[in-house]
Simulated scan of single mutants.
Amino acid sequence: MTEYFSYKQAMNYMGFTAPRTLTEYIKQGLPTIQVGKSKRISKSDIDKFMADHRVVATQDK
């Protein structure tokens, strides 16, 4: 598996298909890489972003 994903590959890796969801993640701080017209997202950045936004659900009694 490659370290740098296209936006489509990144969405597939994260398990969704809506570009609007990816846009929201980027607005919330998911780092992107742009070289010329090529835009990529690092797999390790995705993993870190998702871990940083992990929420442990608690049961209300």
Score class of each variant (00 low, 15 high):
Glu3Phe: 09
Thr21Val: 12
Met14Ala: 04
Glu24Trp: 05
Gly36Trp: 07
Lys48Ser: 14
Ala10Cys: 07
Gly15Glu: 01
Ser6Asp: 04
Ala51Met: 06
Asp45Tyr: 09
Pro19Asn: 10
Ile41Glu: 00
Asp52Arg: 11
Phe16Glu: 05
Val35Leu: 12
Ser6Trp: 05
Tyr4Ser: 01
Gln9Ser: 07
Ala18Thr: 06
Arg54Gln: 10
Thr23Leu: 13
Leu30Met: 07
Ile41Ala: 01
Met11His: 02
Ser42Met: 11
Glu3Thr: 06
Met11Val: 02
Met14Cys: 08
Gly29Leu: 06
Gly29Pro: 05
Thr2Ile: 10
Lys37Ile: 09
Met14Phe: 07
Asn12Glu: 15
Tyr7Val: 13
Ile41Thr: 00
Ile33Phe: 13
Gly36Met: 10
Thr2Trp: 03
Thr23Phe: 03
Thr2Tyr: 06
Thr2Phe: 08
Asn12Leu: 09
Arg20Trp: 06
Leu30Pro: 04
Lys48Phe: 11
Asp52Phe: 00
Ala51Val: 02
Asn12Ala: 15
Glu24Tyr: 11
Tyr13Trp: 05
Met11Thr: 05
Arg54Phe: 12
Ile41Met: 03
Thr23Pro: 04
Tyr25Gly: 01
Gly29His: 11
Gly15Tyr: 02
Leu30Val: 01
Phe16Ser: 04
Gly36Tyr: 08
Gln9Asn: 08
Glu3His: 08
Thr21Ile: 10
Gln34Arg: 15
Ala18Gly: 07
